Amino acid sequence: MPSACNVVVLISGSGSNLQALIDSTRASEQPARICAVISNRADAYGLERAQAAGIATRVLDHKAFEGRDAFDAALIEAIDAFAPQLVVLAGFMRILTPGFVRHYAGRLLNIHPSLLPKYKGLHTHQRALEAGDREHGCSVHFVTEELDGGPLVVQAVIPVQTDDSAASLAQRVHEQEHLIYPLAVRWFAEGRLHLGEHGAMLDGQPLPSTGHLFRT
């Protein structure tokens, strides 16, 4: 295994999870190295975060391509130019084609703002409140062809307060995202985490269906 695990991060927006990953990779014992940040939006603030950290950036405007397949083919070419061992989705607001997902099988991670398999898709915080859930949180998972459906790596669980709004819940979930995403990336970079035939594996042992759980 190389001394550093090269990572490409895909973003569409402000890049708060990207910043948490940048901060974590500055630690001397962190084996992950973000070699590039790629966005489908030229105005994504996360690009400025990357540039401030001296990380290479690329922009691929999805509207310039004839459909998802053409965009994803170009995206694969852009990513592979950096020869990453891991690709990390950090608020990348694109539904990926099966061909893209297969190309990066076992080395593609995503974070989702709910306790998967609950609340796949959007508006997760409001949906948790409307359901009267007592707990909410976020999940890191390997990406498969099923939207928000890949094997879970780690989840952070927080209590839902009686006075929570979707905004307050989102803020507290974001704080947990910034803890568990760097952790999952570090596990992968250290060679401890991989996708096995039957799901996510940590230190050679299958993770439970919930992934590794952290409660606050």
Rank of each mutant, 00 (worst) to 15 (best):
A128G: 08
F82Q: 09
H212K: 11
P151T: 01
H194A: 07
L193M: 00
N17Y: 06
A74E: 04
M93W: 10
D203W: 00
Y104P: 05
T25Y: 09
A166Y: 10
L152P: 05
V87D: 06
K63N: 15
E135M: 13
V160W: 07
P84V: 01
Y181T: 02
H62C: 10
H141W: 12
G196E: 02
S14T: 05
V59P: 04
F100Q: 13
L60D: 11
L202G: 00
L86I: 07
G15A: 08
E175F: 13
E48Q: 15
R172A: 11
I11Y: 01
Q30I: 15
Q171H: 14
A78M: 01
R215T: 01
V160N: 08
L115C: 09
Q176V: 15
G196C: 03
P113G: 10
A4H: 09
L195K: 06
D43I: 02
G121V: 03
L195C: 01
M93S: 02
V7H: 06
E190D: 04
G54M: 01
K63I: 13
F65Q: 08
T144L: 08
L179V: 15
G67N: 04
E177D: 02
L96A: 03
T210W: 01
A156H: 11
V101M: 14
A131F: 01
K120G: 08
L89K: 12
R68A: 03
Q176A: 12
F100S: 11
A32D: 03
L75P: 01
P98K: 08
L152W: 05
G15R: 10
E77V: 03
H136P: 10
V87H: 05
K118V: 14
A36I: 11
G150L: 02
Q19T: 04
I55F: 06
I95P: 09
T162M: 15
D23Q: 11
P2H: 09
A184W: 00
D23P: 15
E190V: 02
H174L: 13
Q19I: 04
S28K: 13
A131N: 07
P117D: 05
V9M: 10
P2C: 09
A44Y: 11
A78H: 02
R172Y: 12
L213S: 09
D23W: 05
M201P: 06
R107K: 00
T57V: 14
A50E: 07
A167E: 15
G106H: 13
A184Y: 03
G121P: 07
D43G: 05
V37F: 07
F142L: 03
L21G: 07
P31A: 08
Q155L: 08
G106W: 07
S209A: 15
R58P: 14
D72I: 11
R41Q: 09
Q176M: 12
R215S: 07
N6C: 12
F65I: 01
N17A: 12
L47K: 02
F100H: 14
E135H: 14
A167G: 13
Q19Y: 10
E175S: 09
E66M: 15
H136W: 14
G106N: 06
L202Y: 03
L75Q: 00
A170M: 02
A4D: 12
G106C: 12
T97F: 08
S3Q: 13
G15N: 02
T162A: 14
A78L: 01
A42D: 12
G137M: 11
R49F: 03
